[in-house]
Amino acid sequence: MTHPMRTGARLELKDVTKTYTGHGADKHVLDHISCIVEPGEFLSIVGPSGVGKTTLLRLLTGLTPVTSGEILLDGKKVTSPPEDLAIVLQEYTRSLMPWLTVEKNIELPLKLKKIAKDERGERVQSAIIEVGLEGNGSRYPWQLSGGMQQRVAIARALASRPRILVMDEPFASVDAQTRLDLEDLVLKVRDDFGITTLLVTHDMDEAVYLADRVLVLTGKPAHVAAEIAVPLVYPRDQVETRAHPDFGHLRGEIYQLIRGKR
């Protein structure tokens, strides 16, 4: 099938710092994070658990305000959830609505954007096909497996035709086989639409396998320990790419960065 070609958005973080205040001592979570993500690029953000990856994601999506610094999406300052951004969260069981069918779940953001009914229907159907959920549109999320539910969440994100897709540990609660399938699905989506993609994960293998570049966060408060380019060629292959010597080296490098700073 053909897809209307879109260009990804450019994301820029300038000296982003986050401190949570109130309720006792201030909690300094993120310290002067700077990074540029080029249009269409795939960036993985890794770090030990509790480092503040999810906080960074909330700042990017405009759900939480930055304490200082700036986040720019195509040069525009992010203060509220941007139109061109869509998210996929880890907890698919909680982010999908159990009272809506798969189709209605995917349609909801389009409804919120006041898109005409005919167009909504078309977009929902093409998103369902994109993630391989044909024939499941009128089922409810709780009638589907975990992997399929996460596909629904991805379809919902795609239906709003974002220029940047942000995912928070999207594959952390599915089984190993499903995880590999979903990883390849995400790569296909990036290829099909050329959207800028950000993946927050604690899995170093996954970070390297998917990304053009890996941003390593460590420390308390978290800062950028390294930005590592991944020179492995696309399309990537679950067997060949992971067997490549560069894959092992990069993985080792990231592992040491994360472990060394603890």
Binding site: G62, L63, P81, E83, L108, S160
Partner: peptide, 9 residues
């Protein structure tokens, strides 16, 4: 759920 909806503006 509320965050998800907020992210969709």
């Amino acid at each position: 759920l509320l965050d998800t909806l907020s992210a969709f503006n």
